[in-house]
Simulated assay, not measured.
Amino acid sequence: MLSGCSSDDDDPNVAESPAPTAGETTTPTPDATPEPSAVDPASVKANELAAIPVMMYHQVKAEVCSACVYDQTPAEFKAELARMHKAGFVPITVAQMVAGEIDVPAGKHPVVLTFDDSSASQIQIDADGNPTPDSAVGVLEAFAKENPDFRAMGSFYVNDTSFNDPKALPWLVEHGYEVGVHTVTHANLKQSSDTTVQKEIANNIAAIKAQAPDAKVNTIALPFGISPSNPQLLRSGEFEGKSYTLDAALLVGSNPAKSVFDADFDPYKIARIRSGPKNKPVETDSTYWLDLFDQGKWAAYTSDGDPTKISFPSTSTKKVGSKWADKANPYEPAGEGSGSSSSPSPSATASTPPSSSPEETPAATPTSTS
Rank of each mutant, 00 (worst) to 15 (best):
D117R: 00
S118H: 06
S118M: 05
S118A: 15
S119H: 14
S119T: 13
A120S: 13
S121K: 04
Q122I: 02
Q122P: 11
Q122A: 08
Q122F: 07
I123R: 01
I123T: 00
I123F: 04
Q124I: 10
Q124S: 12
I125V: 10
I125W: 03
D126Y: 12
A127K: 12
D128Y: 09
D128I: 06
D128V: 11
G129L: 01
G129S: 00
N130H: 13
N130A: 15
P131G: 06
P131R: 09
T132A: 13
T132C: 11
T132M: 13
T132W: 10
T132R: 13
T132Y: 08
P133Q: 13
D134E: 03
D134L: 00
D134V: 03
D134W: 01
S135G: 14
S135I: 04
S135T: 15
S135E: 10
A136I: 07
A136E: 10
V137T: 03
V137L: 09
V137K: 07
G138S: 08
G138A: 09
V139F: 12
L140F: 12
E141G: 10
A142P: 00
A142M: 14
F143A: 09
A144C: 05
A144S: 06
K145N: 14
K145T: 15
K145I: 15
E146T: 06
E146H: 08
E146N: 07
N147G: 11
N147F: 08
P148M: 05
P148R: 09
P148Q: 08
P148E: 07
F150L: 02
F150I: 05
R151P: 08
R151W: 11
A152S: 15
A152M: 12
M153G: 07
M153S: 11
M153L: 13
M153F: 08
M153C: 13
G154K: 00
G154I: 05
S155G: 02
S155F: 00
S155H: 00
F156T: 02
F156W: 07
Y157G: 07
Y157D: 08
V158Y: 01
V158K: 08
N159P: 12
N159Q: 14
N159D: 15
D160V: 10
D160C: 12
D160F: 10
T161A: 13
T161R: 11
T161C: 11
S162G: 03
S162P: 00
S162L: 10
N164Y: 10
N164A: 15
N164H: 14
D165E: 07
D165H: 05
D165N: 01
D165Y: 02
P166D: 15
P166K: 04
P166S: 13
P166Y: 02
P166C: 05
P166E: 15
K167Y: 05
A168M: 04
A168H: 03
A168W: 00
L169W: 04
L169G: 03
W171Y: 09
W171G: 03
W171M: 01
W171Q: 04
L172D: 02
L172C: 01
L172R: 02
L172Y: 04
V173W: 06
V173G: 00
V173L: 02
E174N: 11
H175T: 06
H175G: 14
H175N: 15
G176K: 04
G176S: 05
Y177G: 03
Y177E: 06
Y177K: 02
